[in-house]
Structures are given as C-alpha cells and as structure tokens.
Design a protein around this nucleic acid. Structure first.
Length: 248
DNA sequence: CCATTAAATTCAA
DNA sequence: TTGAATTTAATGG
C-alpha cells in the first residue's frame, strides 16, 4: 500500500465531477461558487485524467477553453529556437492553464504536460466568459492571476538576459522551493536536471555542474532527483543583489 | 557537444 | 519485494 493512503477515502470524490463536492479550495471557481448566478455553470465542465508524462495541450492546437488543475502538477512549455524546449512555468493544483487563449488568440502558443498523474477540469471559453461578465469578484481574482503571471514573466526576461548561469539555476531552485515547498528536507517536486535547465534557460550539463559546485559548498544536497536546500538564507543571498521578487 | 561510467528509477515477475 | 532493464546523473575530453 502506498504511504499516502490517508487520501484513499477521498478518492471517489473524483467520480463526482461537480464543483460542489470539490476539495480544492485553491481553485478560484471553487472559491466563488456561491456567488454564481447560473448554478448550472459547473455542469458544463468536463474533466480529463492525465497520466504522468502525458501532454494534454499541444502547441498550435485550436483554443476552445481553459484548463484548471484539480489535482497534480503540470509544466507549461514552449518550443524555442532550435527545437529546444523552454519551460515557461510550473503549475499546481488550482491553477489555470491556457489562459492566454482568451481574446484574439486562436491557437495555443504553449504546450502543457503532466508531471505526475493529474486531473484537469476543462471549461469552454463561452461559459467562462459568461461567468466572468456576471461576476466581478471572480473577474478581479482572474485579473490578479494575470497580473502575477505578467510580473513573473517580466522578471524571467531579466533573469535570462542578465543573470549568470549559476544565478539562474539558483533562482530556479528558489522558485521551486517557494512554489512547492519542501517535504522532509527535499523539494516537494522531483525534476530532472534537464527540466531545471529548460526552465533556467541553460543546458543539462551546466545544471549538473552548478549542482555539483553547490553541493561542495553545502548550499544544496542532492539524492538523485531529490534536491534539498539546507540553508535557504545563504542561497538567497547569492542572488539578492539582483533583487528577486516573490512570485507564485 | 559526445562518450563513458555510476547511480537512480521503473517495471514486471 | 526484488533485480533486471531502462533512464538519468556526473565527468572529462
């Protein structure tokens, strides 16, 4: 039996697809359920179960709606100049994927792949539009999400264009730590060095070499894919001169 | 970038 | 639960 068996009692919650029974308080649809004028809104959603490693948004596919992560973790990617994968962001439970599809965009400019077995809720653009037009609180929360994403995206431009490889790798480690926290001393999201590289805008070898250096300096510990940060403060200090901001 | 070896993860019996 | 098969990490050229 898996060690997380304390979740098994909730498992049939997934077969009930209604938002009413949903446990995910991180989801802005869930948080705003009571205020909906149209109680049937959540009946229009569909859910999709995704296995680890499965891509559920293809770059270039037509946009019809938006995904919300009910459970799991996802990476959002974009194909770069010479076919290299660029990781735009990591997303966890409650987050929105494909949100730039609103408005004039007709095709996804990003792809999304599940990093662990995940459950996605899918809402059509039309039904979401109706709700947002009726519900200013939810529209406001959505706006905050967009603003936050924009802030992070602008910071990423700075980090990629002005920071050294070592600083970008550290920045990535801090981002993962901030967003996913740690579990028994290790980052609560196992990533390959390749994925660190794709987020930090460098190569797998560079990440491996920076990790090796950081290990020697006792700034991180590594056991395979599990990375631990024993002293967050000194790691932060390394890049503090390039002022890094909280982002989600 | 590639090749080699060591180490870790996955898979299926 | 194990260990064989496969994938990933680490280093040096």
């Amino acid at each position: 039996m898996p060690s997380n068996s304390h979740f098994t009692s909730k498992q049939n919650a997934f077969s009930d697809l209604s938002c009413i029974a949903c446990e995910n308080k991180n989801c802005l649809i869930n948080r705003n359920l009571q205020t909906f004028l149209d109680p049937d809104f959540t009946k229009n959603k569909s859910t999709l179960k995704c296995k680890k490693g499965q891509q559920f948004i293809m770059e270039g596919a037509p946009v019809n709606g938006l995904f919300f992560i009910l459970k799991g973790t996802v990476k959002v990617i974009r194909t770069g100049i010479n076919g290299r994968e660029q990781i735009v962001r990591f997303a966890k439970e409650g987050e929105i994927i494909g949100h730039r599809g609103f408005g004039t965009e007709e095709y996804y400019s990003i792809g999304a792949v599940a990093l662990k077995d995940s459950v996605l809720c899918y809402f059509s653009k039309e039904s979401l539009q109706n709700v947002l037009l009726q519900n200013s609180k939810m529209a406001y929360e959505m706006m905050l999400f967009y603003a936050n994403e924009l802030n992070r995206s602008e910071n990423k431009v700075k980090s990629i264009s002005q920071m050294t490889v070592r600083e970008r790798v550290i920045d990535t480690l801090l981002y993962i730590h901030r967003k996913f926290g740690d579990l028994r001393g290790f980052l609560n999201l196992p990533l390959s060095r390749r994925e660190y590289a794709d987020y930090a805008g460098t190569t797998e070898e560079q990440v491996i070499r920076v990790f090796s250096a950081l290990k020697k300096e006792n700034l991180i510990i590594a056991q395979g894919k599990k990375i631990g940060i024993p002293d967050l403060q000194s790691l932060k200090r390394e890049i503090s001169e390039h002022n890094y901001f909280l982002d989600t």
